[in-house]
Simulated assay, not measured.
Amino acid sequence: MTSPRFNFVIDCSDVALAEYLRLDAESAVKVYTRGDLNWCLQTYHILLKRSKLPIQLSNRMLPGAINIIHSDQLLQQRGDSSAFIVCVRADYPGRRWAHYHLVQNKNQLGHNVSFLPHWVQPGLIKRDAARNSVKRVAYAGEAFNGNLAGTTDTWKSLLEPHQIEFVTLAGGSWHDLSTIDILVGIRSFDKQPFNTKPPTKLFGAWHANIPFIGGHDSAFKQVGTPGEDYLLAATPDEAIAAILKLRDNPALYAKLVQNGQRKAALYTEETIAQAWVEALTGPVMQRYRQWQSKPLLEQARFAALLGMGNLEHEAKQIIKKLVGKKMNPALWSVATFVKKSLFF
């Protein structure tokens, strides 16, 4: 039985695909700007360099291959029963008709699902070793999309009395942490676990030799230890107290950096590439062989779950529109029940 190729699928024209294929790993860093490029194009380039897997990059799913595609693109392309589909879920819903899922949070694990950590920020520039005080606190990411608790102005006003600057690093500069003394990654001022979110920001802090203050994200707790390699905060007061503690306690600052360096060694391009290889050649390949062995059953499964998936998506769009309007309590309860019942 011949081994299939691993086909990484991205959303682009044939002309753009040819350009992506010509990029080397270094220059490709500049184009990792959206989900499928981060998860599929970046993985293709890294595995091309760090593995001997038979891999290819394309803009469509192919029969006879193990097709690895981001959830958003899978929703658009749908696929057919001749294609074996591995859905990279990322921050998006799972797609029931996919044959396997790859997730970024261990709380998303289940049947035919593997956890794979996202890649560390490409081209990361570490904190300047000459910096010896806490003067600049940053959030590296988009601050407008609900991933940062509070507003940039709120953070600035909280830190200004302590002569500490707060900045949000703009897209394109997230990799340059040379002038940052503390990184924050608090999505909300409460204890929500955010079970679909990755631990990527914590990885970045560890690799940049910068202490990290995070919220109660389950992903952070899955890979780190609060108080040892990062600090927890669930309120604005706790966040400011943690920042001031790091400013006033050099020993604690050094402890978090040193422990973070040890943890960073577990999450490198090399180790994450190896995790990809093990997942693709292990459970993903096992599921592919199972799919090959029962073609009629798998065709029926695909047709049924694709239809169900389309209905789910359409229902979700309707619910979103309803949520955007005023709803009476009874209708809200029905919409909430439907959403919880349908989506996984």
Rank of each mutant, 00 (worst) to 15 (best):
Q121L: 07
T33N: 13
R78K: 10
A98K: 04
K156N: 12
N328I: 03
S188L: 04
K245N: 10
F337G: 08
S51R: 09
H175F: 13
H175T: 02
E270A: 15
I213D: 03
R5A: 14
G110K: 04
D176A: 05
W291G: 10
K320V: 03
K340R: 15
P198C: 13
P93E: 11
T168M: 08
I318D: 09
V9S: 11
E160V: 01
I125D: 05
W332F: 15
I46Y: 13
L266Q: 13
L244S: 03
T152E: 15
V137Y: 08
R34Y: 07
P283G: 06
T268A: 14
R136N: 08
E142V: 11
A16S: 11
H70P: 04
T196R: 12
V86T: 00
S58V: 03
A16P: 05
L62Y: 05
G150W: 03
L296N: 11
D248L: 05
L74E: 08
G110L: 02
D176G: 01
P63Y: 02
D14A: 13
N209K: 06
I182R: 07
S188Y: 07
G224T: 04
S293Q: 15
V284E: 01
N249T: 14
L169I: 05
L53S: 00
R187L: 15
D229L: 08
L280D: 05
A300Q: 11
V184I: 15
I182Y: 06
W174P: 00
P329C: 08
G150E: 02
T179H: 09
R262Y: 07
L177M: 01
L158T: 09
T268N: 11
I180S: 01
R22F: 00
P250K: 11
L48Q: 15
